[in-house]
Computed example of a mutant assay.
Amino acid sequence: MQSDTKEIKSLPMDYRENAKDLAAGAAGGVAQVLIGQPFDIVKVRLQTQFGGSALTAARNIYAQEGARSFYKGTLVPLLGVGACVSIQFGAFHGFRQLIESYNYRNGHTKDPGLSLPQFYLAGGAAGVTNSLISGPVEHIRIRLQTQPHGDAQLYSGPWDCARKIIRLEGPAGLYRGQVVTLLREFHGYGVWFAAYEGLLGFLQHHEQKKREELPNWQIAICGGLAGEALWLLSHPLDVIKSKMQSDGFGPNQKYHNMRHAFKETWVTGGIRGLFQGLGPALLRAMPVSAGTFATVELVRKLLV
């Protein structure tokens, strides 16, 4: 006897695609660091040391610390960001599949694809997953980027920095500013993935092409514009994160929590204080995000 109950179906999880996204994300993360690190150190200096312009900060770094200093603290992000971007893309694909399966079960069998809000949700969830690694990685990177130069140098390298943080505040000290990091990662990567997928969808519809048929330069432009959207809409959270993660320890600690950091930044700098360093962040976003997505899509095509 046939059951009247409608059979609940779901789309199968594609683990091969997940593996491809992890590998492609790792390659994209390496490209992201190599392209973006010089811009990033200027941004962090502006966020944590008041006054001046991006050009002045870049000139000062070059004059006082040399050209190699634009890649100060690169080892940790090179390893860590490769892992982070790998996790971002792998997690994004996993959450995307879960939402597609949800759409399929709820009757969207013709097109179980994601809407823009759903892309935002999948990207935000991927960002939260990634924050478990990105929090400590960025904390160490920021301390290396903002420490004094020469004899006054505080840390000999990333491992020395991590050891000293743990000695002063315990393992939890590596996660300083984690609440604002979670907020930035959820919102920022929600915007990033939604903008990218939305732009790609527009191009596919406009040119009547499949995703894999789009030329690399169009992929790069979509990725670059998505990067601009990410930083425009999440920069104040990044400023607060940088301030908290470059703050002192013990009696030298200026910010007690995220709310206190927001309040102090508003009192001293107003709305402009929350957007300090936006210029180099936007300059960095276009090539870095373009390079990341172009590399990811290229590697995914190669991993057939």
Rank of each mutant, 00 (worst) to 15 (best):
K6I: 11
K6S: 09
I8D: 13
S10I: 11
P12Y: 02
M13P: 07
D14M: 04
Y15T: 11
E17R: 11
D21R: 08
G25Y: 01
G25W: 02
G28Y: 01
V30C: 09
V30D: 11
Q32R: 06
I35S: 05
G36R: 00
P38H: 00
P38E: 00
F39L: 01
D40K: 08
V42T: 02
V42Q: 01
V42C: 02
K43I: 04
V44L: 01
L46M: 10
T48K: 00
Q49R: 11
G52F: 00
S53E: 00
L55N: 10
L55P: 06
L55Y: 09
T56M: 09
A57L: 03
A57D: 05
I61G: 02
I61C: 06
A63N: 12
E65W: 08
E65H: 11
R68S: 15
S69H: 14
K72V: 09
G73W: 04
L78W: 02
G82C: 10
A83K: 04
V85R: 12
S86M: 02
S86D: 02
I87D: 14
Q88R: 12
Q88W: 13
F89D: 11
F89K: 13
A91R: 05
H93R: 14
F95E: 11
R96E: 15
I99C: 13
S101C: 06
R105V: 05
G107R: 01
K110G: 10
D111W: 07
D111K: 13
P112G: 06
P112C: 05
P112I: 04
